[in-house]
């Protein structure tokens, strides 16, 4: 008995594999952005599904802000090794030292500084396409992204002048210096990602699961206590049982109090959640158009 029916995860999967293979077919020098976060973990599995038994026809690229959670970097390196993939790391630190990125007075966040670091890496390796794990359900500006998102020679996104995307026909043609960002998970939601992690039995960094951590109350969130931005005497510090829902830099990633110890626990927690995942990211809250502005400048 055969049923010629795909469920929602299988639909999302075949769509994403198709996009991965279009990238391999249409671009000379693609790269896959791999941070070790849950979305890029799914991307890597989709790349395996698209290209095995061959090696992945693209290196992995990560921009290390220097403010990453150590658990994340450890996982990133280990996973790349398991896959036999080439992992290229470019650091914001190095970009600052070389004068590629310039720190503004009092600027602590590395969010803006990732942009020139990434663009310099693209130039250094002459990448014509970077595959990223962004999802449209994350944020309002991302909701308007195409699967194939064209960037001009300055790495800029022009939301008013995007290429129409019709059926599954992606236009990947570029002139020299131009670049494509490709988002195979565009149609996935946070729930889809976790259900896929469960179905594929994928390992994720330990900080997604419940653990005990010292947190400081700041901007309405519980941020991990760290050396970069130590708690002020006036701030409340507590020892909490938490997990992270989305991973950004250690100075801006809010921890949520949670007992979720397994992927199933996380799925149950998200099903009942009343706050979006980006609600725990201070970098998106700074203004209503924060993401739109960063994307126009070349961010993901």
């Amino acid at each position: 008995m055969t049923s010629y029916h795909l469920d929602h995860l299988q639909h999302l999967e075949t769509e994403a594999i198709h996009i991965m293979r279009e990238v391999a077919g249409e671009f000379e020098r693609p790269a896959l952005l791999f941070s070790g976060g849950k979305d890029s973990i799914c991307l890597l599995r989709l790349a395996e599904k698209a290209f095995r038994p061959s090696d992945l026809p693209m290196p992995l690229l990560n921009v290390d802000t220097g403010h990453h959670f150590p658990e994340l970097n450890e996982f990133r390196d280990r996973r790349a090794k398991q896959l036999g993939a080439r992992l290229i790391i470019r650091t914001v630190e190095e970009a600052i030292a070389k004068g590629i990125a310039t720190v503004a007075a009092g600027e602590i966040s590395r969010n803006r500084l990732q942009i020139p670091t990434l663009l310099a890496a693209i130039e250094e390796f002459r990448f014509d396409c970077c595959i990223g794990g962004a999802r449209r359900d994350e944020e309002k500006a991302r909701a308007k992204e195409r699967f194939f998102s064209f960037r001009d020679a300055f790495g800029q996104w022009d939301p008013k002048n995007q290429r129409p995307e019709i059926w599954n026909l992606y236009n990947g043609r570029l002139n020299p210096g131009e670049n494509m960002r490709v988002f195979p998970l565009s149609n996935w939601t946070e729930m889809d990602v976790w259900e896929y992690i469960q179905r594929e039995k994928l390992e994720v960094p330990s900080i997604y699961f419940t653990h005990r951590r010292q947190c400081v109350r700041r901007g309405g969130q519980w941020l991990p206590v760290n050396n970069l931005v130590p708690p002020k005497p006036s701030e409340e510090v507590r020892d909490l049982v938490v997990r992270v829902r989305t991973i950004g830099d250690i100075i801006s990633t809010g921890c949520v109090e949670s007992p979720a110890a397994t992927v199933s626990d996380i799925i149950a927690e998200i099903a009942a959640a009343r706050v979006t995942e980006r609600g725990s990211r201070a970098d998106d809250k700074s203004s209503e158009a924060a993401m739109e502005d960063r994307k126009k400048a070349g961010y993901f």
Binding site: R136, D137, A143, K144, K160, T189
Partner: peptide, 8 residues
């Protein structure tokens, strides 16, 4: 609305 926005 000036572009296609996707919602889930």
């Amino acid at each position: 609305t000036i572009d296609v926005a996707y919602r889930y």
